[in-house]
Design a protein around this nucleic acid. Structure first.
Lengths: 220, 220
DNA sequence: CTAATATTCTTTAGATAATTAGATTATTTA
DNA sequence: TAAATAATCTAATTATCTAAAGAATATTAG
């Protein structure tokens, strides 16, 4: 004999498990990292700026909420999102927060300090211009993230190597740099570096998760 | 002098405010109720089965996360979602939980115990059949929720009045009943009641929030 | 089989949240 | 202006979460 109230309580409790998994800043950062592809615990801990132990504990929470899955390879444990719906949820949650929290907007202002550095293009026209070779799209994330999924026509130029590889960029052609998404600082730094080298560079705010959530295609 | 880490921490913290707001079962239930339209605190508390004080406290949390807004009318305080994006987020979160948590699926099985009672129609064809008068769509939520938004061609027949108003239903025509969404028990009870009265009745799982999230039109 | 590495498990302290009851504020009605 | 109503605020208790540190486990290399 299960009462209506008990059934309802169970239903909302279960959904709240997912909400709870998304209620900690560090877990959100881990989810965003996993939107870039699978990573092992040490990578995740380093990128998120937390201890390995804490990363492991947060990943366990995400695993209990069935948002991530793990795969063992030798002595490494690789985590990944269970599917793209989780990435879409992250993008939706971020967008919702962005659209209503003033504190978030002003903090984001520090990431995108120079509006003219932002690529004014929408996805489709960027795609077209890139295909025609009218501009160069570079992916400034670490190479292993590029290898797992990247924007069409984008070439991998990790921020760490960018300075040494400037000569690989086709001359006299605008460059659009992207990274992990709106919260990531890699593309911002890339644009600054390129501008100092005299390259006409802008940043695309989207990462692969945002790109896919818009229904646009990705390459591997 | 704000470090990159500090900026990032702020960004994820802000998004986590929204995640945190969605991490409590009772707050989720309140959000789902507010998807039906604005309600005052006592209504919300009664429907969610909690005390007025607790409802007030949860609503304050939702307000701090900027997910709901309030309006005072006389001695009543009416709450509503700040916009449809919040309703979409609720629908997305529920869908994400539904698709991966087995416990949720089995609990949901108790709400939708008889699969043949579920309307097999998709939104557009339901709309067409309703327009042509081939079936009767009834909204079994309380009348004030119907008044704020409802499915096109639906008529209001609150569950509480349904038994007395059976004669208003066009005879020999299938009836599709809907309520607040997949977690709501009103439509299930309506279908049971109608079936006992010999009416060919099925349930539509969608509520207005799900309907709108699918990009389908609503009426007022 | 042993040592080294990568990760998880366990425990703990401090911080934060949920819930309840009592006091308080704002609004309407008499 | 006083009483009644609706909701919020404050304070207290209990429960839960975060983060860190030490112990334990699983896998590989020697």
């Amino acid at each position: 004999m299960t009462s209506a109230r008990e059934i309802k309580d169970t239903l909302y409790q279960q959904v709240a498990r997912v909400g709870k998994a998304l209620s900690s800043p560090k877990r959100l950062e881990l989810v965003e990292l996993l939107c870039q592809g699978e990573m092992h615990v040490e990578q995740l801990a380093t990128e998120a700026g937390i201890s390995l132990k804490l990363a492991s504990a947060h990943l366990k929470e995400l695993r209990l909420a069935q948002l991530v899955a793990l795969r063992r390879d030798g002595r490494r444990v690789f985590y990944s999102l269970v599917d793209d719906q989780v990435a879409d949820l992250w993008v939706a949650l971020r967008a919702c927060a962005e659209n209503r929290l003033l504190e978030l907007r002003s903090a984001l202002g520090e990431v995108v300090s120079h509006p003219h550095e932002l690529s004014p293009l929408n996805g489709k026209s960027l795609l077209n211009q890139a295909r025609r070779g009218e501009l160069t799209v570079i992916d400034v994330r670490p190479a292993n993230e590029y290898a797992q999924a990247h924007l069409p026509y984008a070439r991998s130029m990790p921020l760490a190597e960018l300075k040494q590889r400037l000569d690989e960029l086709p001359p006299d052609r605008p460059v659009v740099a992207y990274c992990r998404g709106p919260f990531c600082l890699l593309a911002k730094d890339a644009v600054t570096l390129l501008a100092q080298a005299g390259v006409n560079a802008t940043r695309l705010e989207d990462g692969v998760a945002e790109w896919r959530a818009r229904g646009l295609p990705l390459a591997q």
